[in-house]
Design a protein around this nucleic acid. Sequence first.
DNA 1: CCCAGTTTGTTCCCGCGTTCACAAACTCCT
DNA 2: AGGAGTTTGTGAACGCGGGAACAAACTGGG
Lengths: 273, 273
Amino acid sequence: MTSTRSNRNGAAPGEGAGGAASRNEARPEVSASTRVPERGIPEATVARLPIYLRALITLAERGIATCSSEELATAAGVNSAKLRKDLSYLGSYGTRGVGYDVEYLRYQIAREIGVTQDWPVVIVGIGNLGHALANYSGFTSRGFRIVALLDSDPARLGEPVGQMRIRGIDELEAIVDEHDVAIGVIATPAAAAQGVCDRLVTGGVTSILNFAPTVLSVPAGVDVRKVDLSIELQILAYHEQRKAMSAPAAQLAEPELAAADLDGALARVVESA
Amino acid sequence: MTSTRSNRNGAAPGEGAGGAASRNEARPEVSASTRVPERGIPEATVARLPIYLRALITLAERGIATCSSEELATAAGVNSAKLRKDLSYLGSYGTRGVGYDVEYLRYQIAREIGVTQDWPVVIVGIGNLGHALANYSGFTSRGFRIVALLDSDPARLGEPVGQMRIRGIDELEAIVDEHDVAIGVIATPAAAAQGVCDRLVTGGVTSILNFAPTVLSVPAGVDVRKVDLSIELQILAYHEQRKAMSAPAAQLAEPELAAADLDGALARVVESA
DNA sequence: CCCAGTTTGTTCCCGCGTTCACAAACTCCT
DNA sequence: AGGAGTTTGTGAACGCGGGAACAAACTGGG
Protein backbone atom coordinates (compact mmCIF):
# COMPACT_ATOMS: atom_id res chain seq x y z
CA MET A 1 0.00 0.00 0.00
CA THR A 2 2.91 2.34 -0.30
CA SER A 3 0.45 4.59 -1.99
CA THR A 4 2.84 7.50 -2.39
CA ARG A 5 -0.06 9.67 -3.14
CA SER A 6 0.67 11.50 -6.28
CA ASN A 7 -1.59 14.45 -6.15
CA ARG A 8 -2.10 16.42 -3.01
CA ASN A 9 1.35 17.90 -3.11
CA GLY A 10 3.17 15.08 -1.44
CA ALA A 11 1.77 16.15 1.87
CA ALA A 12 5.08 17.16 3.34
CA PRO A 13 5.84 13.75 4.78
CA GLY A 14 9.04 14.61 6.48
CA GLU A 15 8.46 18.23 7.24
CA GLY A 16 11.75 18.06 9.02
CA ALA A 17 12.32 19.18 12.53
CA GLY A 18 9.64 18.07 14.87
CA GLY A 19 6.45 19.84 14.07
CA ALA A 20 7.72 23.24 14.96
CA ALA A 21 6.34 24.47 11.70
CA SER A 22 2.83 24.43 12.97
CA ARG A 23 2.48 27.90 11.58
CA ASN A 24 4.78 29.30 9.02
CA GLU A 25 4.60 33.01 9.16
CA ALA A 26 7.10 33.80 6.52
CA ARG A 27 5.31 33.39 3.28
CA PRO A 28 7.14 35.38 0.69
CA GLU A 29 4.71 35.12 -2.16
CA VAL A 30 1.55 36.96 -1.49
CA SER A 31 1.22 39.42 -4.24
CA ALA A 32 1.21 37.55 -7.53
CA SER A 33 -2.22 38.59 -8.66
CA THR A 34 -3.96 38.94 -5.34
CA ARG A 35 -5.68 42.00 -4.06
CA VAL A 36 -6.62 40.95 -0.59
CA PRO A 37 -4.29 39.54 2.06
CA GLU A 38 -6.22 36.32 2.48
CA ARG A 39 -3.62 35.04 4.87
CA GLY A 40 -4.85 34.37 8.31
CA ILE A 41 -8.55 34.17 8.91
CA PRO A 42 -9.05 33.78 12.67
CA GLU A 43 -10.07 30.35 13.74
CA ALA A 44 -13.16 31.63 15.49
CA THR A 45 -14.26 33.24 12.28
CA VAL A 46 -13.69 30.08 10.27
CA ALA A 47 -15.93 28.22 12.67
CA ARG A 48 -18.72 30.68 12.02
CA LEU A 49 -18.49 30.86 8.25
CA PRO A 50 -20.54 27.67 7.78
CA ILE A 51 -23.24 29.20 9.95
CA TYR A 52 -23.38 32.28 7.80
CA LEU A 53 -23.44 30.10 4.73
CA ARG A 54 -26.43 28.23 6.01
CA ALA A 55 -28.22 31.44 6.94
CA LEU A 56 -27.60 32.84 3.47
CA ILE A 57 -28.98 29.71 1.87
CA THR A 58 -32.11 30.01 3.96
CA LEU A 59 -32.51 33.65 2.96
CA ALA A 60 -32.02 32.78 -0.69
CA GLU A 61 -34.68 30.13 -0.40
CA ARG A 62 -37.11 32.76 0.69
CA GLY A 63 -36.32 34.78 -2.36
CA ILE A 64 -34.45 37.48 -0.48
CA ALA A 65 -31.86 39.01 -2.77
CA THR A 66 -30.25 41.51 -0.43
CA CYS A 67 -29.81 41.63 3.29
CA SER A 68 -28.20 43.88 5.84
CA SER A 69 -25.63 42.70 8.31
CA GLU A 70 -28.27 43.03 10.99
CA GLU A 71 -30.68 40.69 9.23
CA LEU A 72 -28.02 38.15 8.42
CA ALA A 73 -26.68 38.31 11.94
CA THR A 74 -30.01 37.54 13.54
CA ALA A 75 -30.58 34.76 11.04
CA ALA A 76 -27.25 33.28 12.05
CA GLY A 77 -27.75 33.97 15.73
CA VAL A 78 -24.75 36.22 16.23
CA ASN A 79 -23.94 39.86 16.84
CA SER A 80 -24.02 42.10 13.77
CA ALA A 81 -20.68 43.67 14.59
CA LYS A 82 -19.11 40.27 14.84
CA LEU A 83 -20.63 39.29 11.55
CA ARG A 84 -19.27 42.33 9.79
CA LYS A 85 -15.83 41.82 11.19
CA ASP A 86 -15.89 38.18 10.22
CA LEU A 87 -16.89 39.02 6.68
CA SER A 88 -14.28 41.72 6.49
CA TYR A 89 -11.60 39.04 6.73
CA LEU A 90 -12.81 37.63 3.43
CA GLY A 91 -12.83 40.98 1.69
CA SER A 92 -15.30 43.74 1.03
CA TYR A 93 -18.25 41.93 -0.41
CA GLY A 94 -20.93 44.29 0.82
CA THR A 95 -22.16 47.67 -0.33
CA ARG A 96 -22.38 50.47 2.14
CA GLY A 97 -25.81 51.87 2.55
CA VAL A 98 -27.29 48.79 0.94
CA GLY A 99 -26.11 45.55 2.47
CA TYR A 100 -24.99 42.24 1.02
CA ASP A 101 -26.11 40.50 -2.12
CA VAL A 102 -27.24 37.15 -0.85
CA GLU A 103 -26.19 35.05 -3.83
CA TYR A 104 -22.87 36.76 -4.21
CA LEU A 105 -21.93 36.55 -0.56
CA ARG A 106 -23.09 32.97 -0.43
CA TYR A 107 -20.74 32.07 -3.21
CA GLN A 108 -17.84 33.95 -1.70
CA ILE A 109 -18.19 32.21 1.63
CA ALA A 110 -18.67 28.83 0.00
CA ARG A 111 -15.52 29.35 -1.99
CA GLU A 112 -13.58 30.53 1.02
CA ILE A 113 -14.58 27.49 3.02
CA GLY A 114 -13.90 25.22 0.11
CA VAL A 115 -17.31 23.67 -0.37
CA THR A 116 -17.37 24.62 -4.01
CA GLN A 117 -14.93 21.80 -4.44
CA ASP A 118 -15.68 18.13 -4.21
CA TRP A 119 -14.30 16.50 -1.10
CA PRO A 120 -14.10 12.73 -1.10
CA VAL A 121 -14.72 11.38 2.39
CA VAL A 122 -14.41 7.95 3.89
CA ILE A 123 -16.35 6.88 6.95
CA VAL A 124 -14.88 4.19 9.17
CA GLY A 125 -17.05 2.39 11.68
CA ILE A 126 -20.60 1.81 10.53
CA GLY A 127 -22.38 1.31 13.81
CA ASN A 128 -25.42 3.26 14.82
CA LEU A 129 -23.62 6.52 14.45
CA GLY A 130 -21.82 5.65 11.25
CA HIS A 131 -25.12 4.61 9.81
CA ALA A 132 -26.60 7.97 10.63
CA LEU A 133 -23.61 9.78 9.21
CA ALA A 134 -23.79 7.83 5.97
CA ASN A 135 -27.37 8.93 5.50
CA TYR A 136 -26.84 12.47 6.70
CA SER A 137 -27.82 14.70 3.84
CA GLY A 138 -25.87 17.57 5.35
CA PHE A 139 -22.69 15.88 4.24
CA THR A 140 -23.42 15.08 0.65
CA SER A 141 -25.28 18.29 -0.04
CA ARG A 142 -22.30 20.45 0.76
CA GLY A 143 -19.57 19.16 -1.44
CA PHE A 144 -18.67 16.13 0.62
CA ARG A 145 -18.88 12.92 -1.33
CA ILE A 146 -18.79 9.73 0.65
CA VAL A 147 -16.65 7.32 -1.31
CA ALA A 148 -16.65 4.39 1.08
CA LEU A 149 -18.11 3.00 4.27
CA LEU A 150 -15.68 0.77 6.10
CA ASP A 151 -16.21 -1.58 9.00
CA SER A 152 -14.12 -4.26 10.59
CA ASP A 153 -17.01 -6.59 11.26
CA PRO A 154 -16.99 -9.30 8.58
CA ALA A 155 -20.64 -10.03 9.24
CA ARG A 156 -21.56 -6.58 8.04
CA LEU A 157 -19.54 -6.76 4.87
CA GLY A 158 -21.67 -5.95 1.87
CA GLU A 159 -24.57 -4.72 3.92
CA PRO A 160 -26.34 -1.89 2.09
CA VAL A 161 -26.41 1.52 3.70
CA GLY A 162 -28.20 4.17 1.75
CA GLN A 163 -26.94 3.76 -1.76
CA MET A 164 -23.64 2.24 -0.77
CA ARG A 165 -22.36 -0.99 0.66
CA ILE A 166 -20.16 -1.59 3.63
CA ARG A 167 -16.67 -2.59 2.65
CA GLY A 168 -13.93 -4.21 4.67
CA ILE A 169 -11.46 -2.21 6.67
CA ASP A 170 -8.66 -3.90 4.77
CA GLU A 171 -9.56 -1.85 1.73
CA LEU A 172 -8.85 1.38 3.59
CA GLU A 173 -5.48 2.19 2.10
CA ALA A 174 -6.50 1.30 -1.43
CA ILE A 175 -9.62 3.42 -1.29
CA VAL A 176 -7.87 6.40 0.24
CA ASP A 177 -5.21 6.24 -2.41
CA GLU A 178 -7.56 5.67 -5.31
CA HIS A 179 -9.94 8.50 -4.54
CA ASP A 180 -7.32 10.78 -3.14
CA VAL A 181 -9.22 11.06 0.12
CA ALA A 182 -8.07 13.90 2.34
CA ILE A 183 -10.81 13.78 4.96
CA GLY A 184 -11.69 10.78 7.09
CA VAL A 185 -14.49 10.27 9.57
CA ILE A 186 -13.97 7.92 12.50
CA ALA A 187 -17.10 6.52 14.11
CA THR A 188 -15.63 3.40 15.63
CA PRO A 189 -15.55 2.38 19.28
CA ALA A 190 -12.87 4.15 21.25
CA ALA A 191 -10.58 1.16 21.35
CA ALA A 192 -10.28 0.99 17.58
CA ALA A 193 -10.06 4.68 16.88
CA GLN A 194 -6.32 5.22 17.20
CA GLY A 195 -5.52 2.30 14.97
CA VAL A 196 -7.89 3.47 12.30
CA CYS A 197 -6.51 6.96 12.65
CA ASP A 198 -2.97 5.78 12.09
CA ARG A 199 -3.95 3.89 8.98
CA LEU A 200 -5.81 6.87 7.62
CA VAL A 201 -2.88 9.17 8.24
CA THR A 202 -0.31 6.89 6.68
CA GLY A 203 -2.65 6.50 3.76
CA GLY A 204 -2.53 10.24 3.20
CA VAL A 205 -5.56 11.59 5.05
CA THR A 206 -4.73 14.95 6.61
CA SER A 207 -8.06 15.87 8.20
CA ILE A 208 -10.00 13.70 10.59
CA LEU A 209 -13.41 14.12 12.14
CA ASN A 210 -13.43 11.96 15.23
CA PHE A 211 -16.62 10.75 16.88
CA ALA A 212 -14.92 8.16 19.04
CA PRO A 213 -14.61 9.21 22.67
CA THR A 214 -10.85 9.14 22.81
CA VAL A 215 -7.93 11.45 22.28
CA LEU A 216 -6.22 10.81 18.99
CA SER A 217 -2.55 11.48 18.55
CA VAL A 218 -1.54 12.51 15.08
CA PRO A 219 1.60 13.89 13.51
CA ALA A 220 1.93 17.59 12.89
CA GLY A 221 0.13 18.74 9.80
CA VAL A 222 -2.90 16.58 10.43
CA ASP A 223 -6.03 18.29 11.68
CA VAL A 224 -8.37 16.52 14.05
CA ARG A 225 -11.76 17.76 15.09
CA LYS A 226 -13.60 15.91 17.79
CA VAL A 227 -17.33 15.64 18.22
CA ASP A 228 -18.35 14.09 21.50
CA LEU A 229 -22.06 13.76 21.97
CA SER A 230 -21.90 12.94 25.64
CA ILE A 231 -19.66 15.87 26.43
CA GLU A 232 -22.23 18.27 25.08
CA LEU A 233 -24.83 16.78 27.35
CA GLN A 234 -22.51 16.98 30.31
CA ILE A 235 -21.93 20.67 29.69
CA LEU A 236 -25.66 21.18 29.66
CA ALA A 237 -25.95 19.18 32.86
CA TYR A 238 -23.45 21.43 34.56
CA HIS A 239 -25.43 24.55 33.76
CA GLU A 240 -28.64 22.81 34.63
CA GLN A 241 -27.25 21.90 38.00
CA ARG A 242 -26.27 25.50 38.47
CA LYS A 243 -29.75 26.70 37.71
CA ALA A 244 -31.27 24.15 40.06
CA MET A 245 -28.90 25.17 42.82
CA SER A 246 -29.64 28.85 42.72
CA ALA A 247 -33.40 29.00 42.48
CA PRO A 248 -35.42 26.34 44.27
CA ALA A 249 -34.85 24.83 47.67
CA ALA A 250 -37.26 22.04 46.93
CA GLN A 251 -34.87 19.50 45.51
CA LEU A 252 -33.14 18.40 48.66
CA ALA A 253 -32.45 14.87 47.69
CA GLU A 254 -29.09 13.44 48.51
CA PRO A 255 -26.36 15.31 46.71
CA GLU A 256 -23.99 12.61 47.80
CA LEU A 257 -23.77 9.31 46.07
CA ALA A 258 -22.24 6.16 47.41
CA ALA A 259 -18.80 5.62 46.02
CA ALA A 260 -19.69 2.08 45.13
CA ASP A 261 -22.51 3.26 43.01
CA LEU A 262 -20.21 5.64 41.30
CA ASP A 263 -17.81 2.90 40.49
CA GLY A 264 -20.47 0.81 38.97
CA ALA A 265 -22.06 3.66 37.13
CA LEU A 266 -18.90 4.98 35.62
CA ALA A 267 -17.03 1.80 35.01
CA ARG A 268 -18.84 1.04 31.83
CA VAL A 269 -18.16 4.39 30.34
CA VAL A 270 -14.75 3.57 29.10
CA GLU A 271 -16.01 1.26 26.43
CA SER A 272 -18.81 3.46 25.26
CA ALA A 273 -19.04 3.75 21.54
CA MET B 1 -34.07 42.60 19.40
CA THR B 2 -33.25 39.23 20.70
CA SER B 3 -30.09 40.85 21.78
CA THR B 4 -27.73 38.21 23.00
CA ARG B 5 -29.22 36.03 25.61
CA SER B 6 -26.47 34.04 27.28
CA ASN B 7 -26.86 35.87 30.51
CA ARG B 8 -24.76 33.49 32.38
CA ASN B 9 -24.47 35.03 35.77
CA GLY B 10 -26.57 38.06 35.19
CA ALA B 11 -29.73 36.08 35.73
CA ALA B 12 -30.85 34.59 39.00
CA PRO B 13 -31.59 37.90 40.60
CA GLY B 14 -33.35 36.48 43.60
CA GLU B 15 -30.86 33.95 44.80
CA GLY B 16 -32.95 33.90 47.99
CA ALA B 17 -32.06 30.38 48.80
CA GLY B 18 -31.24 29.71 52.34
CA GLY B 19 -31.70 26.04 51.59
CA ALA B 20 -29.26 25.86 48.76
CA ALA B 21 -26.46 26.36 51.21
CA SER B 22 -27.01 22.93 52.65
CA ARG B 23 -25.22 21.60 49.66
CA ASN B 24 -21.84 20.54 50.90
CA GLU B 25 -21.08 20.82 54.55
CA ALA B 26 -18.98 17.73 54.37
CA ARG B 27 -15.98 19.78 53.60
CA PRO B 28 -13.83 19.77 56.70
CA GLU B 29 -10.89 21.72 55.45
CA VAL B 30 -12.63 24.38 53.46
CA SER B 31 -15.41 24.87 55.91
CA ALA B 32 -15.41 28.49 56.86
CA SER B 33 -11.87 29.59 56.51
CA THR B 34 -11.57 30.08 52.80
CA ARG B 35 -14.59 31.41 51.04
CA VAL B 36 -14.91 29.12 48.13
CA PRO B 37 -15.24 31.14 44.96
CA GLU B 38 -17.15 28.32 43.35
CA ARG B 39 -19.35 30.84 41.62
CA GLY B 40 -18.13 31.17 38.12
CA ILE B 41 -16.10 28.41 36.57
CA PRO B 42 -14.93 29.68 33.18
CA GLU B 43 -16.87 28.29 30.30
CA ALA B 44 -13.76 26.99 28.62
CA THR B 45 -12.94 25.03 31.73
CA VAL B 46 -16.43 23.60 31.97
CA ALA B 47 -16.10 22.33 28.42
CA ARG B 48 -12.93 20.47 29.37
CA LEU B 49 -14.11 18.90 32.60
CA PRO B 50 -15.86 16.02 30.79
CA ILE B 51 -12.60 15.33 28.99
CA TYR B 52 -10.74 15.10 32.25
CA LEU B 53 -13.45 12.91 33.62
CA ARG B 54 -13.08 10.51 30.77
CA ALA B 55 -9.33 10.46 31.10
CA LEU B 56 -9.62 9.72 34.80
CA ILE B 57 -11.98 6.88 34.11
CA THR B 58 -9.54 5.43 31.65
CA LEU B 59 -6.72 5.70 34.17
CA ALA B 60 -8.84 4.09 36.85
CA GLU B 61 -9.61 1.25 34.49
CA ARG B 62 -5.92 0.57 34.21
CA GLY B 63 -5.66 0.37 37.97
CA ILE B 64 -3.77 3.61 38.34
CA ALA B 65 -4.52 5.08 41.74
CA THR B 66 -2.53 8.29 41.56
CA CYS B 67 -1.45 10.50 38.73
CA SER B 68 0.40 13.73 38.26
CA SER B 69 -1.00 16.67 36.39
CA GLU B 70 1.42 15.88 33.62
CA GLU B 71 0.11 12.37 33.18
CA LEU B 72 -3.51 13.37 33.32
CA ALA B 73 -2.88 16.23 30.94
CA THR B 74 -1.35 14.04 28.29
CA ALA B 75 -4.15 11.52 28.73
CA ALA B 76 -6.64 14.30 28.15
CA GLY B 77 -4.67 15.86 25.35
CA VAL B 78 -4.11 19.24 26.96
CA ASN B 79 -1.36 21.29 28.52
CA SER B 80 -0.51 20.42 32.10
CA ALA B 81 -0.57 24.05 33.20
CA LYS B 82 -4.01 24.42 31.76
CA LEU B 83 -5.15 21.29 33.50
CA ARG B 84 -3.92 22.49 36.88
CA LYS B 85 -5.54 25.85 36.43
CA ASP B 86 -8.79 24.21 35.41
CA LEU B 87 -8.79 21.95 38.44
CA SER B 88 -7.93 24.83 40.71
CA TYR B 89 -11.33 26.32 39.94
CA LEU B 90 -12.95 23.32 41.57
CA GLY B 91 -10.81 23.46 44.67
CA SER B 92 -7.57 21.95 45.86
CA TYR B 93 -8.07 18.29 45.27
CA GLY B 94 -4.45 17.39 44.66
CA THR B 95 -1.50 16.86 46.94
CA ARG B 96 1.71 18.75 46.27
CA GLY B 97 4.64 16.54 45.72
CA VAL B 98 2.34 13.62 45.02
CA GLY B 99 -0.36 14.32 42.48
CA TYR B 100 -4.04 13.53 42.30
CA ASP B 101 -5.93 10.58 43.66
CA VAL B 102 -7.68 9.24 40.61
CA GLU B 103 -10.85 8.03 42.30
CA TYR B 104 -11.21 11.09 44.44
CA LEU B 105 -10.69 13.54 41.64
CA ARG B 106 -12.96 11.57 39.40
CA TYR B 107 -15.75 11.86 41.89
CA GLN B 108 -15.16 15.54 42.47
CA ILE B 109 -15.29 16.34 38.78
CA ALA B 110 -18.33 14.15 38.28
CA ARG B 111 -20.07 15.91 41.11
CA GLU B 112 -19.10 19.32 39.82
CA ILE B 113 -20.43 18.55 36.36
CA GLY B 114 -23.51 17.00 37.82
CA VAL B 115 -23.27 13.50 36.44
CA THR B 116 -23.61 11.98 39.87
CA GLN B 117 -27.23 12.91 39.57
CA ASP B 118 -29.76 11.26 37.35
CA TRP B 119 -30.82 13.42 34.42
CA PRO B 120 -33.97 12.42 32.63
CA VAL B 121 -33.68 13.19 28.94
CA VAL B 122 -36.17 13.13 26.12
CA ILE B 123 -35.14 12.71 22.50
CA VAL B 124 -37.36 14.18 19.81
CA GLY B 125 -36.98 13.08 16.22
CA ILE B 126 -36.07 9.45 15.81
CA GLY B 127 -34.61 9.44 12.35
CA ASN B 128 -31.21 8.07 11.56
CA LEU B 129 -29.54 10.35 14.02
CA GLY B 130 -32.11 9.99 16.76
CA HIS B 131 -31.79 6.27 16.40
CA ALA B 132 -28.07 6.50 16.93
CA LEU B 133 -28.48 8.79 19.89
CA ALA B 134 -30.98 6.46 21.52
CA ASN B 135 -28.48 3.66 21.35
CA TYR B 136 -25.50 5.79 22.27
CA SER B 137 -24.06 4.25 25.38
CA GLY B 138 -22.22 7.44 26.17
CA PHE B 139 -25.50 9.00 27.21
CA THR B 140 -26.92 6.39 29.50
CA SER B 141 -23.62 5.52 31.09
CA ARG B 142 -23.09 9.02 32.42
CA GLY B 143 -26.16 9.79 34.42
CA PHE B 144 -28.42 10.57 31.51
CA ARG B 145 -31.55 8.45 31.45
CA ILE B 146 -33.59 8.52 28.30
CA VAL B 147 -37.19 8.57 29.38
CA ALA B 148 -38.84 8.85 25.99
CA LEU B 149 -38.25 8.78 22.25
CA LEU B 150 -40.71 10.97 20.41
CA ASP B 151 -41.47 11.23 16.72
CA SER B 152 -44.18 12.90 14.74
CA ASP B 153 -44.45 10.15 12.16
CA PRO B 154 -47.50 8.03 13.01
CA ALA B 155 -46.08 5.14 11.02
CA ARG B 156 -43.18 4.87 13.43
CA LEU B 157 -45.31 4.93 16.53
CA GLY B 158 -44.57 1.96 18.73
CA GLU B 159 -41.49 0.98 16.78
CA PRO B 160 -38.89 -0.50 19.15
CA VAL B 161 -35.57 1.27 19.48
CA GLY B 162 -33.15 -0.34 21.84
CA GLN B 163 -35.17 -1.16 24.88
CA MET B 164 -37.72 1.55 24.31
CA ARG B 165 -40.53 2.30 21.94
CA ILE B 166 -41.20 5.37 19.88
CA ARG B 167 -44.03 7.45 21.24
CA GLY B 168 -46.06 10.17 19.62
CA ILE B 169 -45.05 13.80 19.74
CA ASP B 170 -48.39 14.63 21.31
CA GLU B 171 -47.21 13.02 24.52
CA LEU B 172 -44.37 15.51 24.82
CA GLU B 173 -45.82 17.79 27.44
CA ALA B 174 -47.12 14.96 29.59
CA ILE B 175 -43.80 13.14 29.56
CA VAL B 176 -41.75 16.24 30.31
CA ASP B 177 -44.01 17.05 33.19
CA GLU B 178 -44.24 13.57 34.57
CA HIS B 179 -40.53 12.85 34.62
CA ASP B 180 -39.51 16.40 35.39
CA VAL B 181 -37.35 16.49 32.29
CA ALA B 182 -34.90 19.38 32.22
CA ILE B 183 -32.83 18.38 29.18
CA GLY B 184 -34.20 17.79 25.72
CA VAL B 185 -32.47 16.55 22.59
CA ILE B 186 -33.74 17.70 19.21
CA ALA B 187 -32.85 15.50 16.26
CA THR B 188 -35.65 16.49 13.93
CA PRO B 189 -35.38 18.04 10.47
CA ALA B 190 -34.64 21.73 10.54
CA ALA B 191 -38.17 22.74 9.69
CA ALA B 192 -39.63 21.08 12.76
CA ALA B 193 -36.94 22.07 15.24
CA GLN B 194 -38.25 25.43 16.39
CA GLY B 195 -41.72 24.10 17.00
CA VAL B 196 -40.40 21.20 19.03
CA CYS B 197 -38.13 23.58 20.89
CA ASP B 198 -41.02 25.83 21.83
CA ARG B 199 -43.03 22.92 23.14
CA LEU B 200 -40.11 21.65 25.15
CA VAL B 201 -39.49 25.05 26.68
CA THR B 202 -43.10 25.68 27.60
CA GLY B 203 -43.16 22.20 29.07
CA GLY B 204 -40.35 23.15 31.40
CA VAL B 205 -37.18 22.05 29.65
CA THR B 206 -34.37 24.50 30.27
CA SER B 207 -31.48 22.86 28.41
CA ILE B 208 -31.57 21.77 24.80
CA LEU B 209 -29.08 19.88 22.71
CA ASN B 210 -29.87 20.70 19.13
CA PHE B 211 -28.76 18.55 16.22
CA ALA B 212 -31.05 20.21 13.72
CA PRO B 213 -29.23 22.56 11.37
CA THR B 214 -31.09 25.67 12.38
CA VAL B 215 -30.77 28.50 14.86
CA LEU B 216 -33.18 28.10 17.73
CA SER B 217 -34.55 31.11 19.52
CA VAL B 218 -35.30 30.52 23.15
CA PRO B 219 -36.20 32.76 26.08
CA ALA B 220 -33.55 33.85 28.51
CA GLY B 221 -32.68 31.20 31.02
CA VAL B 222 -32.75 28.35 28.53
CA ASP B 223 -29.42 26.96 27.37
CA VAL B 224 -28.98 25.68 23.87
CA ARG B 225 -26.00 23.79 22.60
CA LYS B 226 -25.78 23.04 18.94
CA VAL B 227 -24.02 20.14 17.32
CA ASP B 228 -23.77 20.44 13.60
CA LEU B 229 -22.07 17.58 11.90
CA SER B 230 -21.68 19.26 8.54
CA ILE B 231 -20.17 22.37 10.05
CA GLU B 232 -17.35 20.36 11.52
CA LEU B 233 -16.61 18.91 8.13
CA GLN B 234 -16.67 22.33 6.54
CA ILE B 235 -14.14 23.61 9.02
CA LEU B 236 -11.90 20.72 8.13
CA ALA B 237 -12.43 21.44 4.46
CA TYR B 238 -11.29 25.00 4.95
CA HIS B 239 -8.02 23.95 6.50
CA GLU B 240 -7.60 21.24 3.94
CA GLN B 241 -8.02 23.76 1.18
CA ARG B 242 -5.43 25.89 2.85
CA LYS B 243 -2.94 23.07 3.00
CA ALA B 244 -3.50 22.24 -0.63
CA MET B 245 -3.09 25.87 -1.65
CA SER B 246 0.16 26.59 0.08
CA ALA B 247 2.31 23.76 -1.13
CA PRO B 248 1.69 22.85 -4.75
CA ALA B 249 1.83 25.11 -7.73
CA ALA B 250 -0.73 23.00 -9.53
CA GLN B 251 -3.44 25.20 -8.15
CA LEU B 252 -4.04 26.70 -11.54
CA ALA B 253 -7.47 25.22 -11.89
CA GLU B 254 -10.38 27.55 -12.02
CA PRO B 255 -10.90 29.29 -8.72
CA GLU B 256 -14.11 30.58 -10.22
CA LEU B 257 -17.21 28.50 -10.58
CA ALA B 258 -20.17 29.20 -12.78
CA ALA B 259 -22.94 30.81 -10.82
CA ALA B 260 -25.42 28.44 -12.37
CA ASP B 261 -23.49 25.48 -11.04
CA LEU B 262 -23.45 27.06 -7.67
CA ASP B 263 -27.17 27.52 -7.65
CA GLY B 264 -27.70 23.91 -8.42
CA ALA B 265 -25.12 22.71 -6.02
CA LEU B 266 -26.27 24.71 -3.06
CA ALA B 267 -29.97 24.83 -3.63
CA ARG B 268 -30.46 21.47 -2.08
CA VAL B 269 -28.60 22.35 1.04
CA VAL B 270 -31.39 24.17 2.72
CA GLU B 271 -33.47 21.11 3.18
CA SER B 272 -30.71 19.01 4.57
CA ALA B 273 -31.68 17.21 7.71
C1' DC C 1 15.13 17.12 62.65
C1' DC C 2 16.65 18.90 58.36
C1' DC C 3 17.37 18.85 53.55
C1' DA C 4 16.69 17.55 48.80
C1' DG C 5 13.33 16.33 45.44
C1' DT C 6 8.81 16.56 43.55
C1' DT C 7 4.41 18.43 42.27
C1' DT C 8 0.52 21.43 42.99
C1' DG C 9 -1.75 25.96 43.08
C1' DT C 10 -1.31 30.59 41.66
C1' DT C 11 0.36 34.84 39.68
C1' DC C 12 1.71 37.41 35.86
C1' DC C 13 1.87 38.37 31.09
C1' DC C 14 0.53 38.07 26.40
C1' DG C 15 -2.30 37.39 22.50
C1' DC C 16 -6.82 36.50 20.61
C1' DG C 17 -11.52 37.51 20.14
C1' DT C 18 -15.48 40.44 21.06
C1' DT C 19 -17.63 44.74 21.19
C1' DC C 20 -18.20 49.66 20.65
C1' DA C 21 -18.11 53.53 17.98
C1' DC C 22 -17.29 56.10 13.96
C1' DA C 23 -15.62 57.47 9.38
C1' DA C 24 -16.40 56.13 4.62
C1' DA C 25 -19.43 55.19 1.05
C1' DC C 26 -23.67 54.37 -1.17
C1' DT C 27 -28.82 55.44 -2.21
C1' DC C 28 -32.73 58.19 -2.47
C1' DC C 29 -35.42 62.23 -2.38
C1' DT C 30 -36.00 66.98 -3.18
C1' DA D 1 -26.81 68.43 -7.57
C1' DG D 2 -26.83 68.22 -2.78
C1' DG D 3 -28.21 66.76 1.59
C1' DA D 4 -30.32 63.36 4.57
C1' DG D 5 -30.50 58.70 5.76
C1' DT D 6 -28.37 53.99 5.83
C1' DT D 7 -25.14 50.59 6.24
C1' DT D 8 -20.51 48.70 5.72
C1' DG D 9 -15.78 48.25 7.14
C1' DT D 10 -12.41 49.10 10.65
C1' DG D 11 -9.68 51.16 14.41
C1' DA D 12 -9.38 50.90 19.34
C1' DA D 13 -10.58 49.40 23.91
C1' DC D 14 -11.34 45.59 26.78
C1' DG D 15 -11.99 41.25 28.86
C1' DC D 16 -10.99 36.32 28.77
C1' DG D 17 -8.24 32.35 28.18
C1' DG D 18 -3.55 30.16 27.54
C1' DG D 19 1.15 29.48 28.89
C1' DA D 20 5.26 30.06 31.54
C1' DA D 21 7.31 30.61 35.82
C1' DC D 22 7.49 30.42 40.68
C1' DA D 23 6.31 29.96 45.59
C1' DA D 24 4.01 26.72 48.70
C1' DA D 25 3.50 22.24 50.39
C1' DC D 26 4.23 17.48 50.77
C1' DT D 27 7.32 13.09 50.80
C1' DG D 28 11.24 10.54 51.79
C1' DG D 29 15.97 9.79 53.19
C1' DG D 30 19.78 10.51 56.19
